[in-house]
Structures are given as C-alpha cells and as structure tokens.
Design a protein around this nucleic acid. Sequence first.
DNA 1: CCGTAAAGCTAAGGCACTTAACCAAGGCTG
DNA 2: CAGCCTTGGTTAAGTGCCTTAGCTTTACGG
Lengths: 197, 197
Amino acid sequence: MPRVGLNQQIVVREAARLADEVGFQQLTLAALASRLGVALPSLYKHVRGADALAQKLSALATAELATEMTTAAAGRAGGEALRAMADAYRDYARRHPGRYPATQRVPDPTDPEHVEAGTRAVGAVYAVLRGYGLTDDDAVDATRALRSALHGFVALEAAGGFGLPREVDRSYHQLVAGLDIAFRSWPSAGAGLARSA
Amino acid sequence: MPRVGLNQQIVVREAARLADEVGFQQLTLAALASRLGVALPSLYKHVRGADALAQKLSALATAELATEMTTAAAGRAGGEALRAMADAYRDYARRHPGRYPATQRVPDPTDPEHVEAGTRAVGAVYAVLRGYGLTDDDAVDATRALRSALHGFVALEAAGGFGLPREVDRSYHQLVAGLDIAFRSWPSAGAGLARSA
DNA sequence: CCGTAAAGCTAAGGCACTTAACCAAGGCTG
DNA sequence: CAGCCTTGGTTAAGTGCCTTAGCTTTACGG
C-alpha cells in the first residue's frame, strides 16, 4: 500500500548491484523484489519479465564498460592504449562479476541505448586499432581477435579455469603483450602463415 | 514396469545428444526423461541430479575435445600444429554446440575420468607450445593465452556476437596466425612492451 | 474535489528439480 | 526350482521460480 516509488532505472540498477553480489545466474526476480521491498509481481510494472531485465542489465553494463574502455584509451596510442584498455576491461569484469556476463548478450536492436552502448564499445576498440594502422577488414579481424582474447581470458578466470599457481596478472600482461606483437604485423600475419603452410 | 535398461553411460550420452539439439541451457531433466522413454524421477537412479548430470556431460565433452585436439596436432609441429589444433577446437564447438559449453566447467576433482580428460586437453596444448620452445612459466602463460583466444572466439561466435558480414572463418584464421606470431617471440614480448612503456 | 492512470497487492497456474515411498523384474543363492 | 533382494522403474508430493489476471489504492491533474 505505501508506494515505494520505483521505476525502471531503479529496478535495473538494483538488479546490477544484486547480480554483482550473488552472480548473474543467481539473479532472480524474487530476490530482487525482496531487496526492493516489494512483492514479486510488482516488478512487472517496470520490466516485461526476467528476460527483459537481463536485456536492460546488459545495456547498462555495456554502456559502463564502453565508457571505461574509452576513458582508459583516451590520450594514449599504440601498445600503451592497448594495455590501458585491456586492463580496464579485466578490471571491470572483476569489479562487476554479475554485470560482466550480461555484456556478452547481443544488443537488443529495439533498444537504442543498448545499440549505442555496443557501438561505443566497438568504436573504442577500433580507435585503438587505428593506432596500429588497421582499418577495414583488417580492423574487423583484429577487433574480433581482441574481443576474443580479452573475453576468453576474463571468462576463464571467472570460471576458476586457471588452476596453476602462476600469477594470473602476469599471464594477462603477457597475453596483451602478445596481442601487441600480433597487431604490429597484422595484415601480413595471415599471409605469412599461409605461405609457410 | 517394462525395464528400459538404462545406465549412467546411456543417460549421459543421450543428454549430450539432446544438448546439441536444444542447447546446453535448455537441457532439462524432463526433456531427457521423455526422450529416454522414462518418468523424470527415474533419472535419479543413474545421476545424482541436474548438476551432477552437467558435470558428467562436462567430463564426456572434455574427453572428446581433448582427443580431437590431440589427434589434430599429431604428426605436426609449430604453426601447422597450432592451426590444426585450433581448427579442431572450433570445429568441435560448432559440431557440438550443446556439449562445448560444458567443457568450460572446471573438472570435478572426485571424478578421475574428468580430471584425466582435463589433463589431456591441457597436455595437448602444452605439446604444441613445446614446438615453440615454450616451457615452464612461459608455457603456462601461453596456454592461458591460447585457451583464452580460442574459447573467446568460439563463445562470441556462438553467441552471435559477430554482427558484421566479414567472414568469420577468415577472422579465425587471422587470429590463429596472430597467435603464431606472438608465440614465436613469446618470452620477449612482455619485456618488449614493458620497455616501450 | 474528484477521476483516472499508475503502482502496488493477492491469487493462481505452469514448469523445473528434488525427495519419499512404493512396486515389479530378474539374477543369485540355497 | 523357489524365493530373496537388489535394482530400476513408478506415482505422489513439495519447493522455488516466472508469469498472468484481476483487484485496490495512491496521488496527480483538471
């Protein structure tokens, strides 16, 4: 009876906080409702359902991540920019273990903010790659490679996939260094391997 | 009343087939039971529950993947071995979209077969990296990098994360070529970037 | 001051997992 | 060959989650 005064913003933001605490998979409408001091069905006044909430959460997290990546790369170029962005990426994933998985969801084409966030994230990567002289098809390939490497590492780390005692920070640093090397000789790399085959 | 003659093997294998058809997330005990012509609770005579089934499925898929990776790399060395293994990896993930995600689960220490499968997979990667002269800490870093890149790419591809029309095969080929380049100058790569920073 | 849209609520149904308790099939043993 | 008892099946029942329907009440605008 007493109105809590919710809206979609508040609901999604609280979902993000909750997800970071309990994990993306464990984010449940029931827990969210109780956290907000409201009965579960009341949430449907603000989000269409569990799936839509995940989509909105994805938009939020993607926007945040894009901003942090952009900020990290600002004022830097080449390997320095690459490393700064990579560090920002992993940092975000570790600070927000519940939001990060949401960023992997493909943007909802009907949600302009979501699409814009995705575009910004890709744009940040493109900007860094321009510092390596990569454009067009090469830039597309390199973007996919960079996203793959960063996401893969962060995902494996989060899943506890790195069992050995070797420091994970050092491995990440080395991975980024390897990307730097690869991007320096990018267009020729494929040709080179093809030639040797 | 008529015995169907199930056992854990049959249940897990059928779960794998079903997962490949409907997706890992959609793999449900209800669907599996109906597929096997049995009432749902009957499954509990063969697996401890849904989570245990996922674990067994992970063991199965990891073993299969390890075998295919090992086979691909056999008789090859250097960049050729790397590319063959990488192709086998992505191939498996695409042929078995339901099993592949299960391989990311960390092996159950109490299941010897699962542990052995994981060891074999890592061993296959190690063997390829030995061809680059990488051992010890360098090999650990390189293994993590390779796993990250391959898993990341495959995961993004499966999630539909590659929107642009640029051919995905070509991007993958380029990624692997980049790894080849990076591994060639692996130990020095980190130092190089550090020096330039 | 009143009407109404929006924000809450309760009730109820569906689907998934799990446990409990019971029953039949069939191999092993006496 | 009979009967026990393990094993693989069954139905029933409970929990948790998501969702929809329909009702109530708040609070704002005219």
